[in-house]
């Protein structure tokens, strides 16, 4: 699965956009300009981007509480995302949702989700629709290692397997369910090994290597599109920030994080792509500047967006019949 120059540009641009978006959100939160509970995706960019490179607007994803990266990779507008984080009317959910609830059905983004394990059955359902309608679409379910232990995740995988649904379950194993290490909460050595019990393919990839994710995802998604059923893909990864902004991070060390930063997915890919002459240094510099501007534009858009009216809290409960 050869990566073209256009694709390399897209991959680097999306990863860089996620990184800058998250770093700016961390600052905005620290400055008190964003409230509530915010879970940042920085460090895990290669997973969302490596997967979503294969998807188009007609395909579906379900996300997690750490959903900003999935949104950006699936094409949700950063301005609308930022406005949602600011609780503004121009946000993806008109300010009702905040960080953990960004959804954009026009992009096939079925929603970040505050419920751990909330997404897998939804992804199976979206895949069922695609199968019934013969649309050729696939669904991708992003979930964390924490969600791997929820009953809903097992239920969804089993059901997707018996019905041969076009869905790919992507476990983003960042090695901690909040503060609890995966070595404690998971009986399996590898989460991907669980695929065997559903009789579906299961592979583990380095979630810091976007090319590896891209290649593994390509096979799984092609299999789903062919009608051969679901797969389980486990991407080993690491989040640079805490579980949530404000987390004291007492459960892992700064040295561990520093070691991951040495293999940073963005710098790794930029180097690989330049070695393979897919990108020039100027491309990388230009993209770095572009995404910074995009994020600043997003913040500007968010701040200019009006506050929703308090009484708008009462809207969108049921459809209105006329």
């Amino acid at each position: 699965m050869e990566i073209t120059r256009d694709r390399a540009v897209w991959i680097y641009e999306r990863m860089a956009l996620i990184r800058v978006f998250e770093e700016r959100v961390a600052q905005l939160f620290a400055d008190g300009r964003i409230a509530g509970f915010v879970h940042l995706y920085a460090g895990e960019e290669a997973v969302a981007v490596g997967i979503c490179t294969h998807l188009n607007d007609g395909d579906f994803i379900t996300s997690t509480h750490r959903g900003h990266g999935h949104c950006i990779a699936k094409g949700v507008d950063p301005g609308e995302m930022m406005a949602e984080l600011f609780g503004r009317l121009g946000g993806s959910c008109k300010g009702k949702g905040g960080s953990m609830h960004i959804a954009d059905v026009s992009k096939g983004m079925l929603g970040a989700n505050g419920i751990v394990g909330g997404g897998p059955p939804l992804a199976a359902g979206a895949a069922l629709t695609a199968k019934v309608q013969g649309s050729g679409a696939v669904a991708v379910c992003f979930f964390g290692d924490g969600a791997a232990e929820q009953g809903t995740t097992h239920e969804a995988m089993n059901l997707a397997a018996i019905w041969k649904l076009p869905v790919v379950f992507v476990c983003e194993n960042n090695q901690f369910a909040e503060s609890t290490p995966v070595s404690y909460h998971c009986a399996a050595t590898s989460i991907a090994d669980r695929a065997a019990s559903y009789n579906i393919p299961g592979v583990t990839v380095d979630g810091y290597d976007v090319v590896a994710v891209y290649e593994a995802a390509g096979e799984a998604i092609a299999r789903a599109r062919r009608g051969d059923g679901p797969s389980l893909l486990e991407a080993k990864t690491w989040r640079y920030f805490g579980h949530f902004e404000g987390d004291q991070i007492t459960y892992r060390t700064a040295e561990q994080s520093a070691a991951y930063r040495e293999h940073d997915p963005l710098t790794t890919f930029a180097r690989q792509a330049q070695d393979r002459e897919l990108l020039q240094k100027e491309d990388v510099d230009r993209i770095d500047a572009d995404v910074k501007k995009k994020v600043e534009d997003a913040i500007e858009f968010a701040e200019a967006s009006p506050q929703p009216a308090p009484e708008d809290a009462l809207t969108d409960v049921y459809v209105a019949y006329r």
């Binding site: 509530g36 300010g95 009702k96 949702g97 905040g98 506050q307 308090p310 809290a313 009462l314 409960v317």
Partner: peptide, 17 residues
Amino acid sequence: GPDVPAMPFNRAQEEAF
């Protein structure tokens, strides 16, 4: 609280709830 499915995030709407 009003009969809406969840507490909204926006500050003014949360206060309205």
